[in-house]
Nucleic acid binder design. Structure first.
Lengths: 190, 190
DNA sequence: CGTATATGTCAACGGCTGTTGGCCATTACG
DNA sequence: CGTAATGGCCAACAGCCGTTGACATATACG
């Protein structure tokens, strides 16, 4: 038994990982339609046909590349007043250390599968983790939706559109400005 | 002299307008690469070759379709404390009454020309109109950049990604929640 | 009326796309 | 060692894309 165990094969896992990495990078940099299977394969150093063998088709390749975990921390453990800065800081970290989010956002704008996935991430990862912080269940969804508008708006302007004044903010400044907004959306009166 | 005066022709302006309208609609709904010239032409009821004759190529067609004016009101005239709600309300209006902004945002994510145009709109329309409200020149660009993150984030979540909790907010609620954020970005201490 | 010009259609081109099936090399295993 | 399977490459397909040029029609004007 060579490596792991799923296929009986030899080094397929290595190649598969290389394809996934190249796919994430190009989906993140160019969006769904411009990230060609041929380009991704060339970047991974193999033939386009291998991509099809391992992932079936482009849609499934994207689904595999867009799989990811936001890794939200346990928010019940942080002090009430700092939840805003913790959330902003965590999002910045995740956004800068993982191409997947950028791939998801860039693709979601023109590719149905991606927007569905993004909504799923919101519903299954953000909502359950943040909702307990809101006292009244009734407005929780609204509050978390508002948080999403500010967070995704920052990501859009900073990493995708690259608006100069937003790009030149340093990490601390982003947290200093955005944290009170997030805090207010989550806790302020209706 | 048949209608206006620019070409000597007969009804070319009508067709040109039909093409532009169809282009805007499809760019807004599908992004740059999925909005094909063939589809746009079919929607305008003419042959694809006409698009080329009137606009040269797809890039120039997009440039023509993405031309637009944000029509920001004179902010010096509104009371100091209501500038937030005026801005949010105006953006919502513009966003819902004109496909162009959505076309610009959808295309900007994967099409260089579009992101350049969007940055230009920010620099030549938003900055000059909003900057006078900021007392210190030094932080004005930063403050307006922050406003952009919240505004574009709302547009992204509401009109492009269609996150359910954000879509179901009514106009008044959006203003009620976002106005204080905008107000703080523009006027609060560093 | 005759002719030039604008308006529009048609068919085709080269290029790029996702996808497929067949062929070679290498390795694992009896 | 021989055989089967796995990893990988190559060439080709059908389809769609932007774009082009030749050709038909209708209008404007001398």
């Amino acid at each position: 038994m060579p490596q792991k165990g799923k296929p009986t094969g030899r080094r397929s896992e290595t190649t598969k990982a290389a394809i996934l990495a190249a796919a994430r990078q190009h989906f993140a940099a160019s969006g769904y339609e411009r990230a060609t299977i041929r380009i991704i394969a060339a970047d991974a150093g193999i033939d386009p046909a291998m991509v099809m063998r391992y992932f079936g088709n482009k849609e499934k390749l994207f689904a595999a590349a867009a799989e990811f975990d936001l890794r939200l921390p346990d928010l019940a453990a942080v002090p009430r007043g700092t939840v805003g800065s913790v959330l902003v800081g965590h999002f910045l970290d995740r956004w800068e250390s993982d191409d997947t989010l950028q791939a998801l956002l860039r693709a979601a704008v023109s590719y149905k599968v991606a927007v569905t996935r993004l909504r799923a991430v919101f519903a299954t990862q953000v909502m359950p983790a943040v909702a307990p912080l809101c006292k009244d269940r009734a407005t929780a969804a609204t509050r978390i939706g508002l948080v999403a508008t500010q967070m995704l708006g920052m990501a859009l302007c900073r990493y995708v559109l690259r608006l100069p004044p937003v790009v030149s903010l340093d990490r601390a400044a982003v947290i200093r400005w955005l944290a009170p907004t997030i805090q207010r959306y989550l806790t302020a009166g209706p």
